[in-house]
């Protein structure tokens, strides 16, 4: 069995997780404490990958970032390509997993009593200082859950990655696509091993989340 698809999957998931950790906290902070029409518009947009078919996202990403897409055409001038390479996978994964980051973190932020944040303000601390020292530490279980969810969801991603990455061995063939290829080749042995590994990763992360939930309840 080829280990390269797994290396690519792990690399992709780790980078996606780190980026979405920061981006997720930023977006959640913006959305969690505001009550405005902007929030009511933005929240459904951010959550849309939860219900959209991956092919819809893949299609739009290709349309926008592909060589003949609007952004793609612009990037061509700088000899930058964002589809059919690792960057394409990353963009697709970030968009596709965004709700898995934002949703738990928003819930965590909203569960923090408002008076804690106000207490920090009355003690003369800035919003950013309060975010770092009060909000994030008190939402740490939600943030860790978000990171685990993003990691395992990115590992398991198929449709967007296939459309935007293009199944190029050693570049964009992730573990989940490799299984698809193994099955087509009738290579059931490698398909089996790969599937078992992905299954284990999924189970381990779900068990971890369960433990986390118990810790939080204590």
């Amino acid at each position: 069995m080829d280990s390269e698809p797994f290396l690519i999957s792990f690399e992709l998931s780790t980078i996606t997780m780190l980026i979405l950790g920061i981006v997720g906290i930023g977006i959640s902070y913006f959305l969690a404490f505001k009550r405005s029409i902007i929030v009511d518009i933005l929240e459904p947009i951010i959550m849309s990958p939860l219900v959209l078919p991956p092919t819809v996202l893949g299609f739009y990403i290709l349309e926008i970032f592909g060589v003949s897409g609007s952004v793609g055409k612009f990037l061509n001038h700088f000899d930058l390509k964002l589809v059919f390479n690792f960057w394409g996978l990353l963009i697709g994964s970030i968009i596709y997993s965004l709700p898995f980051s934002v949703s738990p973190i928003i819930a965590g932020f909203r569960a923090i009593p408002k008076s804690l944040i106000e207490a920090s303000y009355t003690l003369g601390k800035s919003k950013f200082h309060t975010l770092l020292k009060v909000i994030i530490p008190n939402a740490k279980y939600s943030i860790i859950s978000a990171l685990v969810l993003v990691f395992s969801h990115t590992i398991g991603e198929f449709g967007v990655v296939l459309m935007v990455g293009g199944d190029i061995p050693g570049k964009t063939r992730t573990a989940s696509i490799a299984i698809f290829d193994y099955v087509q080749e009738l290579n059931y042995k490698d398909a089996n091993i790969s599937a078992l590994i992905l299954f284990s990763i999924a189970m381990i992360s779900l068990i971890f989340l369960q433990i986390l939930k118990r810790l939080q309840e204590r």
Binding site: V67, G69, G72, V83, F84, N85, G166, I168, K171, Q184
Partner: peptide, 16 residues
């Protein structure tokens, strides 16, 4: 390996 028509579309989008 894949369907020729899919490759055609992807190559037009910059498939390397």
């Amino acid at each position: 390996y894949g369907a020729s028509g899919n490759f055609y579309n992807q190559i037009r989008q910059g498939y390397p």
